[in-house]
Design a protein around this nucleic acid. Sequence first.
DNA 1: TTGACTTGGTTGCAGATGCAACTAATACTG
DNA 2: CAGTATTAGTTGCATCTGCAACCAAGTCAA
Lengths: 161, 161
Amino acid sequence: MSDVPKQRETGQEFDLEGFLPYLLNQAAEATSRSFQASYKAEYGMTRTQWRVLANLGKFGAMTARDICRISHIEKTKVSRAVAALEAEGLLQRATSPEDRRAEILSLTDGGRRVFRDLGQRALAYDAELRKRLGDGVATQIDAVLRSIAAQGDPDVTPGDD
Amino acid sequence: MSDVPKQRETGQEFDLEGFLPYLLNQAAEATSRSFQASYKAEYGMTRTQWRVLANLGKFGAMTARDICRISHIEKTKVSRAVAALEAEGLLQRATSPEDRRAEILSLTDGGRRVFRDLGQRALAYDAELRKRLGDGVATQIDAVLRSIAAQGDPDVTPGDD
DNA sequence: TTGACTTGGTTGCAGATGCAACTAATACTG
DNA sequence: CAGTATTAGTTGCATCTGCAACCAAGTCAA
């Protein structure tokens, strides 16, 4: 950690604008932010809430823990998002019969309705974005991003979303 | 805003895992987080602080406003990061002679030292990541991400980092 | 010069987050 | 079955962030 293998200062200089974490963040923020308007303005939802809802909408009922695993969102965040969504009547909890610690989460009818609405918007937004990027890129980008997300750093704790 | 053009529910279903904002966030968080250890553990710096420092290190003295323009980080965030970095003795301010509202920011020797150190680590981290991605991808990804960051959404406010 | 408007930066405040500590239910192990 | 270690979720607390309101210096125009 502290034994940087004697890099000559004259080696190469750091270029912020070519630094992947930086570029990824810029791109991620730009897109998330612009789509954010959809769930924030109309439903007063948080990014995390939208994601939790999206996961439940997409994969069906499951526990908070499953959501953490699938989405890599930290459990605290999920916990609070679930509480908020429940308060809004968008999702329900049911103690798992097999493990009374776990709660099976599922969307209510209202939740599903919101999911359908936002899902359609997301689809439209995504399509538009990909169209601008061009087919060639659009088809490759997913795999690349998934790969980066997975590798990020091999030897580091799970982290969150 | 509320006139979703009659999308048949039966059209196509929303696939969270193919949603660019989602994928980008996963990738961005994964990389940023893992690199975060470098500046957080050793220098107790924040992501924003690291970015401000990186910008100053890379582009030299400039005003907070310039940093906002270049990095798209929101001005409040920059303001606080600058205050923190100054408190740590990593940067200095000097009232601009031409415009006394503006402050020319520049790294101190200590700041430059930290920049060199973190810059080298960033370089190493980035190189490793790109190596794993493979040359083909690595050379294209930058342009794509920049394009996404720029387009994100054409008609939306500047936003932040 | 005066008064209205813009611009560089800071601050107040209400959220949103991360991390560690904590509760409750389970799973092991002898 | 007791006793300890795990695991699902929640909560306290100390930041970090976003947005709007707010100064102070500048600009512009009458």
